[in-house]
Design a protein around this nucleic acid. Structure first.
Lengths: 245, 245
DNA sequence: GGCTATTTTTTGGTCCTACCATATGCTAGG
DNA sequence: CCTAGCATATGGTAGGACCAAAAAATAGCC
């Protein structure tokens, strides 16, 4: 009694595609064109299968596809809610895509090297363009960092906060998103080890040198201080790897 | 007599999750741990449903999830083939995630600003660290670019190739992936307009100035030349927008 | 009348079965 | 030996049924 599905399904180029992909593409179009606004709910699966004339499986596969991309949030018993992913979420998705690339020391080094490169440039930028209130913010972050010496948890937080200020100064929302990604990607490689107040002391001294150079409007020294600080940090990250390369 | 499905499904924390997600997670684990190597085929859907004790729909949803992440390639009539996405593919996925963020001029500017920032730092790096063969490669790219003046298509290609050399010099595979992303993201905003040989001439002059500063080992001028070159390019990109902000 | 408890409805999550479409391998015929 | 046709494997789709959780509607209570 089962009549099966319709005849073959092809796109404009004649390439066979999944019906679920076609539904997903149309839903994406609808969301990005504003047909369904952020926070609103998607139609129910049973409505969508009627609207598109496909089976519920096809609709479900499309919805799961959108959910994986972060365009919608699904909860059991709820209609999916539309979300418009920002840079942070997008970078988050990259993480589990390239997780295998940062599984070994070489991959982590590649990632860490980009951080050194970017933050060196950010330090230079700050030295050249930081406004007075930027400097005040940076000084406050530095003081908080000094207060936290000896308290590993608080020190890590204020450490990240200090660097975060540098990412904020250019005023481009992409940089703070990158900083969040770096912290989350690399945290597993340095949270794992014990350390004493002397290490905190050293890291704070690095921050101090960076701040001083920025405050003195000395881009070359700011960049150099940042490089020294992060290369030292890398020595700790690499020590978390069992084998030496 | 449909007996329905098994009782509720919860993870270690007691949170209800989809069975397809559990299957997908296990498949990811198997792929990333090397249980199935790159290029090999996944078991058939009917095998997986037996192995995991779930319905075929659940298996399909898991497979589609993996396919969306780029971990496998699916073709009709074929078993899925395992792929380990590299940085390029990962960045590619980001594009359709944040497509709506670069839909307006502000979003494109944020993106373009990061390019200026990164390439300025790359120019500085090249001036400081380029080896002899790096310089030769850059000179060759510059010559090819000069030859292409007047031929819009060839000029665009050699233009991108010139910048690509700078992304390669640090020797980190992440940078070339970023370059590819920039080119693909921004191409739509400057491929659309007509231009004459005078524009090519101007862009080539910009490349020449960058190269000269790098060859002279003058990082400040290299960075400055790159900034001037890209800021000028931005003027063309922004002119593709109908409204002024 | 307004608040709470209970029932009904909605809705996502799962399973099953059947069928179609494509790709691959095998086999028989030239 | 090559090729055409058939059988098999496998992904893609449809439809129906049931469960579980959430939401909406209703009934009951104060």
């Amino acid at each position: 009694m089962d009549s099966g599905q319709e005849t073959a399904y092809r796109d404009a180029g004649g390439i066979a595609i999944r019906r679920s992909d076609a539904v997903a593409a149309d839903l994406v179009r609808m969301i990005q064109s504003g047909g369904i606004r952020e926070g609103e709910r998607l139609p129910a699966e049973r409505d969508l299968m009627q609207r598109y004339g496909v089976s519920r499986a096809a609709v479900r596969e499309a919805i799961i596809s959108l959910a994986n991309r972060g365009l919608i949030e699904t909860r059991l018993g709820h209609r999916p809610i539309v979300r418009r992913p920002d840079y942070e979420i997008a970078i988050d998705k990259v993480r589990d895509l390239v997780g295998h690339l940062v599984a070994d020391q070489k991959g982590v080094w590649n990632l860490f090297e980009t951080r050194i490169f970017l933050e060196a440039a950010l330090a230079r930028w700050a030295a050249n363009h930081a406004r007075r209130d930027d400097l005040e913010e940076l000084r406050a972050a530095l003081n908080a960092n000094r207060e936290a010496i000896g308290n590993s948890l608080a020190f890590d937080e204020t450490d990240a906060a200090f660097h975060a200020v540098l990412y904020r100064i250019p005023g481009n929302p992409i940089y703070p998103a990158l900083h969040k990604a770096y912290v989350e990607w690399l945290v597993q490689h340095w949270r794992s080890m014990k350390r004493g107040a002397d290490i905190d002391q050293m890291n704070h001294a690095g921050h101090q040198a960076i701040f001083d150079a920025i405050a003195m409007r000395d881009p070359d020294n700011a960049e150099e201080a940042m490089r020294r600080h992060l290369v030292a940090a890398w020595e700790f990250v690499r020590s978390t790897f069992p084998v030496e390369c």
